[in-house]
Design a protein around this nucleic acid. Structure first.
Lengths: 150, 150
DNA sequence: TATGAAACGCCATCCCC
DNA sequence: GGGGATGGCGTTTCATA
């Protein structure tokens, strides 16, 4: 993967709606080699998929919450069950297992505080092994992108 | 925005590479009304843009870090300067101002611990008003999606 | 006012150089 | 890496209820 590939990736992760011909001569390449590189990057899995990015506000999803989750037990089965189930909640946009005191951090988006309370009390707190959850609300989104540094 | 629009949004935020005709009859609609609704959702800004999602691993971006940032002062200018500058770092994928003790939480992706150390010491710690940063490393990504609950 | 059918024109794709 | 041909699809217009 050379410099030209990186330019292609940068372009297509910024805006995938422009035509191949346009992108190609934006980076100074004719459309055929551009297309060939693109297909290779897709085949190699560097480009995972094409998606539409929606506006959370316009969908009424005004609230972003970070939930720091601690488990009571850390055996294989509990972790596996927790991870499988937490990933299924559509409100959960991100989840990572973490170093430090917190076992997992979850980012969820919800329409209201009420909805988060339900997510917390009825779903997250009942996940396998959960002993404590610490919730932090985002006041404002400064940056949220899908563009990786290539 | 009715149930049909939600189906369109769900489909296109899951996979924007399939043709309009295919999506249309997947949700039981002929392609013209589907297309009109799509254009309206774009015009209304519900659909913000189309992008390609890249694989961080394949790009060598193996490490995800959450940085909890505290500022020493909270006057308008400091906040504004901090927010403007933090958003410019390509390693910073997300940043939110938060309730609670932490002023800002940042999610960054880097190639190595070394690279994070440089990001922290040379960039983040020098941002306007910063007094303390607490870094937490992700051990594993359980879920990371762009799909919002529609 | 929302949907279905049909024609147009562009662009992704594949050929060869 | 580049140029050219083609087939399919997004786009637009017309017709319908």
């Amino acid at each position: 993967m050379d410099e030209t590939d990186r330019k292609i990736l940068a372009a297509i992760q910024a805006d995938a709606s422009v035509s191949i011909a346009e992108m190609a001569d934006a980076i100074g390449l004719s459309h055929t080699p551009f297309w060939r590189r693109l297909k290779k990057l897709e085949a190699d899995g560097v480009i995972r998929k094409r998606v539409a990015i929606l506006d959370p506000e316009k969908l009424g999803l005004a609230i972003t919450v970070f939930a720091n989750i601690r488990l009571r037990q850390h055996d294989e089965e509990t972790l596996e069950a927790f991870e499988r189930q937490v990933a299924e909640y559509p409100e959960v946009i991100e989840c990572y297992s973490m170093s430090g005191e917190t076992d997992y951090v979850v980012r969820a988006v919800v329409r209201s505080i009420d909805e988060y309370e339900r997510l917390l009390k009825r779903k997250l707190l009942h996940l396998p092994g959960v002993i404590a959850i610490n919730s932090h609300f985002a006041l404002k989104c400064i940056k949220l992108t899908t563009q990786l540094p290539v």
